[in-house]
Design a protein around this nucleic acid. Structure first.
Lengths: 187, 187
DNA sequence: CAGGGTTGTGCAACTAGTTGCACAACCGGG
DNA sequence: CCCGGTTGTGCAACTAGTTGCACAACCCTG
């Protein structure tokens, strides 16, 4: 139940239309909570129905017209409540680790190339974060908001760094593996 | 589409009944691919229907009887195919980071306690991993299988270490935050 | 041997996320 | 002026995961 709160946060940062939200979910917020435009429109409808946000009065609310939303007091209150509420961390789900575990049983055939591909993807992501860091978090950005957002960015940077590290390690390890396709008996 | 493959992997490691699988998903495999027993039973049914696994012949297959499954050649082939196939990393989803971002807008009221709670949870998890490391990966465990599984465990250890690090940092940071509940205008 | 806990299997309903598509409005060039 | 691309909004159907519950069989204890 986090998408509505992600949207509330985004709208509080800046009232937006569905498409603008979609774009922002492709950067910033989307880095740790992704969503498609279909999800976003649906959720905007719900949130409006619940009275947490409202459409900014536009001229003709015709189809194909931009429609911007802003957060109502009830929406802000709900977000504050949710933010403060204690929540258990969700159990991790990582396909790559799962695949590696599977590879231990059915053989490592083919997986190495994908590890390499993931490595470059993570490097690209890290570079993107670094760019944001330099652009948005230079000197003088030490308001509470800035510091909290920077904390989040640091998490992203450190996570990518971890993956790069781990993947590099893994690939090195693969280099020293005897060539084999898993235990005897494989089809 | 990863749960069936997680199950295939687990069954290849050792043929099991639904409940045994459930238990193993609470440790080992479940650390990076969790599943409830309901999910597992449903998936076992599907996999059997698709001819990827089969129930081991038991005495009376009555209700309330244990029913063990083993992987058929087609299942192993499917797992090998899936393992080798290139897959994009799924966009991250992390509620805690989202909440922090929200806190930047609606105030940090209440979130600190939960950060602390998460910190101890991650410490506990790390300790568990360390235990497994000592127990299962002492000297002499250097078959290909062992090394791959150790690689996966290392990822877990390093991830937990990252979170502990980051949370500690965040809490320190919070200590130096001026007491305020977000920007003016909050309800 | 009745009652309560544990083991073991499973269905049904719900929620969240994904995929595929539709369609209006606008804007530019041939 | 019409044709194709882009912008913008949205529905419908599907897939995966979660939650709640049912119920049989076993096992132990009073």
């Amino acid at each position: 139940m986090s998408l509505p709160h992600a949207i509330l946060t985004a709208l509080l940062e800046k009232p937006s239309s569905g498409l603008e939200l979609t774009r922002r979910f492709d950067r910033s917020i989307g880095y740790f909570w992704s969503a498609t435009h279909q999800q976003i429109y649906r959720e905007l409808g719900r949130l409006e129905g619940e009275g947490l946000i409202r459409a900014l009065p536009a001229e003709q609310p015709a189809r194909g017209q931009k429609k911007s939303y802003e957060v109502l007091p009830a929406g802000r209150a709900e977000l504050a409540r949710w933010t403060a509420a204690s929540q258990d961390p969700k159990p991790q789900r990582d396909v790559l680790l799962l695949r590696l575990r599977a590879a231990a049983v059915v053989g490592t055939e083919g997986i190495e190339a994908d590890l390499r591909r993931h490595l470059t993807l993570h490097q690209k992501q890290l570079a993107e974060y670094r760019e944001i860091e330099e652009r948005d978090f230079g000197a003088g950005k030490d308001s509470v908001q800035d510091r909290l957002q920077y904390l989040v960015l640091r998490a992203g940077i450190d996570l990518e760094t971890f993956w790069i590290h781990w993947l590099t390690q893994a690939l090195e390890d693969f280099g020293t593996l005897p060539a084999q396709e898993g235990p005897p008996g494989s089809a």
